[in-house]
Design a protein around this nucleic acid. Structure first.
Lengths: 364, 364
DNA sequence: AAAATTTAGCAACAGCGTTGCGTAATAGAG
DNA sequence: CTCTATTACGCAACGCTGTTGCTAAATTTT
């Protein structure tokens, strides 16, 4: 995140990040794999692998005999070498996960939060949860930081909660700063949906194209992965997908407009018509495809996952029928592969990304 | 576009591109300006400036005496040092512009295209138009290439027209390849709306955040500038903004769905109710802001620019009232600053970007 | 056992930005 | 006019990338 000047350290970070991504995606890899994927020379790859091995981030696990010639050394990520903790802050619960360098969720825990909790109450819950997770041997020393995914609006760049929907004590709270002091660890703050789509992108690796995560859980939101990174928008406010109008003459929404996706959807669920609710979401998803041309749509969120198949078939069918009518227009529709851990895990992955992902460059 | 490996030549291109962007945006600049903007050391900036001066891309234009001490040398882009031609291919017309390195439109010309024109007819029109534009002294030798902006669907990466809406002879035409042979120049192919938003981003420079260009001209489309680059989507099909549903029970659209923004809008214009048409577009724009959180919305297109003020006020008012209700949520709404030249000029700028913009890196 | 083939690293190199330091050009003070 | 302080700017050496050229190691095939 901290702006980096384009010197040789950028190259180091960038090429290392590509190797790490390869290790996450494909479990094992060897020098020739990396050469092909990166376009670097074999010698350069040797240097990168030597650096990563020296840092303990990857290790050789064997050799592959492909016939004649010297066998190739096979490498893998060392999952236990680094950890990050992810927190999903919802209105009533705090979910914490411990994620290792390979992206696996090693522990998961949910604890209740007080009604209308204050920043102090969250910090205390965070601190005790983090302590509990790092008790087991040697985790603490390998912890890279804590990622927090929560409802907005918030300011990602400055780690500021501007005012979480439905929580009274959260106006202009510099959560990142106070959490860093309280936990004595680096903290990363992001919207829940953005963290969620990061988790999906991590699991799929370099082949993951433009994508959206549709989350239905006390509101309807969207997280976006565009051009190889999370899209947060000009003010970290992207993703208010539930407040897009799909019915000009529809009922009035809390946001002040009429016929928002969310209010139309909720009317259907309130009437017990989940099938119709799913079809409404499907209309919104097709709208997104028309606008952004996504390669993947991921469905997530507690309310959605109560009827996963209903939503999945409605969206899949709508995508097939209404949006992707040419054979070159392919879009996958899936349920979130991490289930309820998606947001917290994604927040943790963002922390790992700050260390081992592609270094940020200033645009233009 | 061609995938680049992350070696030191990337650094060179990246830092040079930043200096060039500074020159475009602010007319003149000096070493200290660049140091501040890039975070590079003064010595590194000296080297970059020496390289660019050697290539004739920038030149000293004077000195600035800021009081005590040696005066600072002031530099500017050399607009005449490089050119690109941009083409806007519409259903009935071909618009060509000559753009210089600074982004200024030096010549503009419109010629009619035959009804339902063929690729050969377009190529001939292109060739004679390019010849006419490069007649004047010394332009040809400084020409970097030709950019083509046209209606989709198309495949940007492969320079392939998949099948332009409303044109029969345009199914799977490898336009970039055949145009490069025909013109003996590098050719760049993109959707019209994407070219248009590129032009806006060029004019505004580094401070230009996430933005959309709304184009109304035989259909409603959107071009997106996200995270410092154009967003084209997984299959170069982003921007079919007119085919997003805003009225679930609305009239059936040519695309097969009901209540698309475009059909609802066109019903209003057909009834002569431009104000209502503009309000419909405004609903769609607010939907975009909710989804993507944009810093700028630019209005363009022949049909829209017939009633510029009506659309501008409707969208501005909707953005103010419905979407940006907090003081930190700022979005500007403007009319396209290049008018009818926007698409062609943006296509030309994309060609210049291939040479003097930020080099592409493979994502992750 | 020898040859062929593939993998992998050492050494020298080119090209980035960085660091250290010297030089040039100006305004202001004496 | 002279000297000093100040600011701008580049040369030279350096550290770090990835690259190139070449050698060594490990294995299969002959």
């Amino acid at each position: 995140m901290t702006r980096i000047t384009a010197d040789v350290t950028f190259l180091r970070g960038y090429n290392q990040a590509r190797v790490m991504a390869l290790g996450r995606t494909g479990r094992t890899f060897e020098r020739s794999t990396v050469v092909e994927a990166t376009g670097l020379t074999p010698q350069a790859v040797s240097k990168v692998i030597a650096r990563l091995t020296g840092d303990g981030l990857i290790r050789p696990v064997g050799v592959r005999r492909a016939g004649i010639g010297k066998p190739a050394v096979v490498y893998e990520l060392v999952p236990d070498s680094r950890y990050a903790i992810g927190a999903h802050v919802a209105r009533r619960t705090l979910r914490l996960v411990l994620v290792d360098l390979a992206g696996a969720v090693r522990h998961s825990a949910v604890s209740p939060l007080p009604d209308d909790f204050t920043p102090e109450q969250l910090l205390d819950a965070l601190a005790s949860g983090v302590d509990a997770m790092t008790n087991s041997g040697g985790v603490r020393g390998k912890l890279t930081g804590v990622g927090i995914g929560m409802i907005g609006p918030l300011d990602h760049a400055n780690g500021l909660v501007r005012g979480a929907h439905g929580l009274r004590h959260w106006h202009d709270v510099p959560l990142r700063e106070i959490a860093e002091k309280h936990l004595d660890l680096p903290v990363h703050l992001d919207k829940d949906v953005t963290a969620g789509i990061t988790a999906e992108a991590w699991r799929h690796g370099a082949t993951f194209g433009d994508a959206a995560l549709i989350m239905i859980e006390s509101g309807i939101g969207g997280g976006f992965w565009l051009g190889g990174t999370a899209h947060r928008g000009a003010h970290t406010n992207a993703g208010e997908f539930g407040h897009t109008v799909v019915d000009l003459d529809g009922p009035r929404c809390v946001c002040g407009r009429h016929g928002c996706l969310e209010i139309v959807h909720n009317h259907a669920t309130d009437a017990g018509d989940i099938a119709r609710a799913a079809r409404v979401v499907a209309v919104g998803v097709v709208n997104l495809l028309q606008t952004l041309d996504l390669a993947h749509v991921v469905l997530a969120g507690a309310d959605l996952l109560r009827h996963p198949q209903t939503y999945l078939t409605a969206v899949t069918e709508a995508v097939r029928a209404d949006a992707r009518r040419a054979d070159w227009l392919t879009t996958t529709v899936t349920l979130s592969s991490l289930g309820a851990d998606a947001i917290a895990a994604g927040a943790a992955m963002q922390v790992l990304d700050q260390h081992y992902g592609v270094p940020a460059l200033a645009p233009i």
